[in-house]
């Protein structure tokens, strides 16, 4: 038994042990193979890394890239910020009544499950082709993610503490503020994470299908003029923005969980 335990233990440690040279080697092989294959293929279609790098330098020099990034980040942060400001109070309100939560849940879920590209025609007739429409695409879906997760958290916040507060005659608003909201912080942070992922996708959909600006617009216009290297540059930058947003939320989550202990 003990021999078996050490065997599985060793296997597990082996699987988890970091091997940092492997991803580097893999990336080098991947890029080299891509470069070799890419040079043999029609340059209108394929984009070897060297041409992606050249295109990046070109886009950066002309200032096209910087203005696209700023446009995208502006919509992303404002829409996401609004989603946080509205989503958390809505979540707390939703959790106050079990019936209201249960009744509204299927509608939230239905909206959440509907791909946003197909809502674009409705956004055009409601908001027009512009900034408010793009903002709405970021805001609503993020807000739903944050509100439903906050409501779950508030409902799961220690019922015994709520009971104690209630027996001391504390008002509902004060219970929400001082007992339920602090107790639901891990859920809120989880909602913020899902909301952030949704927000990034929302910005790009708005910029590709509603109004051609920002990084999404760059993707769309460069794809139409058959410049895959420029498209790849924009895709990589979007991935970087998304990763930075998620990593900073992870840092918040770690700080919050440490504070809870």
């Amino acid at each position: 038994m003990s021999a078996a335990e050490t065997r599985t233990g060793a296997a597990r440690r082996g699987l988890r042990r970091p091997q940092y040279w492997l991803p580097v080697l893999s990336l080098a092989v991947f890029l080299a193979g891509w470069e070799l294959v890419g040079r043999g293929i029609d340059p209108l279609l394929f984009a070897p890394p060297s041409r992606v790098a050249a295109s990046f330098a070109e886009l950066a020099r002309s200032g096209e890239l910087l203005s696209a990034v700023l446009t995208t980040i502006n919509t992303l942060l404002l829409g996401y910020g609004l989603a946080i400001l509205v989503g958390i109070p809505v979540g707390v309100l939703l959790a106050q009544s079990a019936t209201a939560g249960a009744v509204l849940r299927p509608y939230f879920y239905g909206i959440f499950a509907t791909p946003r590209v197909v809502i674009v025609p409705l956004i055009i007739v409601w908001f027009g082709v512009g900034y408010p429409g793009r903002l709405f695409l970021v805001f609503l879906w993020s807000m739903i993610a944050i509100a439903t997760s906050t409501a779950d958290g508030v409902r799961n916040a220690r019922p015994d503490l709520v009971e104690v507060a209630r027996s001391y005659g504390v008002s509902r608003a004060q219970i929400a503020r001082h007992v339920q909201l602090p107790g639901s912080v891990p859920f809120v942070v989880a909602g913020l994470r899902i909301g952030a992922e949704r927000a990034v996708v929302g910005v790009i959909i708005g910029e590709m299908f509603l109004q051609l600006t920002g990084l999404g617009g760059l993707i769309q216009s460069k794809a139409q003029s058959f410049e895959p290297p420029a498209v790849l540059c924009a895709v990589v930058i979007i991935a970087v923005i998304g990763t930075v947003l998620i990593l900073s939320l992870d840092a918040v989550e770690r700080r919050v969980s440490r504070w809870k202990e």
Binding site: P18, Q19, Y20, L22, P23, L25, S26, L27, F30, L45, V117, V200, V201, I204, I205, M208, L215, G216, I219, Q220, A223, F226, P228, V231, L232, A234, V235, I238, A239, G242, T243, I246
Partner: peptide, 24 residues
């Protein structure tokens, strides 16, 4: 250690952004 970074990258890139490239 060699393959999972590519899947992580795929996970953070919105599918919409990849559609034009994939279709080309």
């Amino acid at each position: 250690w060699t393959l999972s970074p590519y899947f992580s990258a795929l996970f953070v890139i919105p599918t919409v952004a990849l559609v034009p490239l994939v279709l080309i």
